[in-house]
Design a protein around this nucleic acid. Structure first.
Lengths: 101, 101
DNA sequence: ACTATATATGAATAGCATTTCATATGAAAT
DNA sequence: ATTTCATATGAAATGCTATTCATATATAGT
C-alpha cells in the first residue's frame, strides 16, 4: 500500500464541502456557479475545493464558453459510495442510534 | 448520501498513522504493543488512533489476557483498498511522475 | 478596447484534528 | 495485596487544513 497516495485520496474526500460537491454532481454535471447555488456556498470556497477534487481525478472538467462544467468520475466514485453506504448502513447507524447521536 | 456518516468514515481513514495501522493489520491481527513496534510509534498515539478505527468498525477487538488483539474488518477494507489502489494506479502515479513528485 | 460574467488563485486567519505527556485503569503473576 | 505489564484516557499544546477576502485571469459580447 502506498500510504501517501492513499492518504491524499482519502483526505480529499474527507470533507463536508467536497462530499456535498460530489453528491450534487451525482445528479448531473454542473458549472461552478450552479454548484454554488445548489450548495449555497461562496464561489471561491467552491473553486478551491473543486481544484482538490479535480487534481485527484474525482472530477473531470470541460470548458463551455466562460463556464467550466465539472462532472463526476463515475468509475471510481459510484462503487466507492456504494461500498461506504453499505458499511455505514451496517455499522454506523445502529451505533449512532444507540448512542443517541 | 448521508454526508455526516460519510465524512466520519473518510476522515477516519484519511490519516497517515491510521492508514499504517490498517496496513500492518492486513498482514495479521496484532496487539497494541505489536502495532507500536511494527510502526515505531508511541503507545498512546496508537491507542488513540485505534479507538477511532474501532469506533468506525474498521477494526475488531478481542481481549486475550492483558492484551487486546486488533484485527481488520476485511469485508469493508479489502474491497475499499482494492478500489483505491486502482484509482491511484490509474490516475495519481502518472501525474506524480509528470510533476516530478 | 471595454465591460460584464465566470472562475481561479494567493495569503492571512480561523477552526479543527493530532500528538504528547501525565496519569488512570485493567489483568495477571507473585 | 502489591507489583508489573498492557492498554486507555484527559487535557494542553502543536500542527495542519479550510475558509475568507481581495484580487487576478479568462472568455464572450458590445
Amino acid at each position: 500500500m502506498k500510504c501517501h497516495s492513499f492518504n491524499v485520496f482519502f483526505e480529499t474526500i474527507a470533507n463536508k464541502t467536497r462530499l456535498k460537491i460530489l453528491e450534487t454532481l451525482q445528479d448531473k454535471p454542473k458549472s461552478v456557479t450552479e454548484i454554488c447555488n445548489a450548495l449555497k456556498e461562496e464561489q471561491s470556497k467552491i473553486s478551491h475545493n473543486l481544484k482538490c477534487l479535480a487534481d485527484c481525478h474525482f472530477l473531470d472538467v470541460k470548458k463551455q464558453g466562460k463556464k467550466r462544467i465539472y462532472s463526476l468520475n463515475k468509475e471510481t466514485m459510484v462503487p466507492l459510495m456504494k461500498l461506504v453506504s453499505r458499511h455505514v448502513a451496517r455499522y454506523c447507524c445502529k451505533d449512532c442510534k444507540a448512542r443517541g447521536k
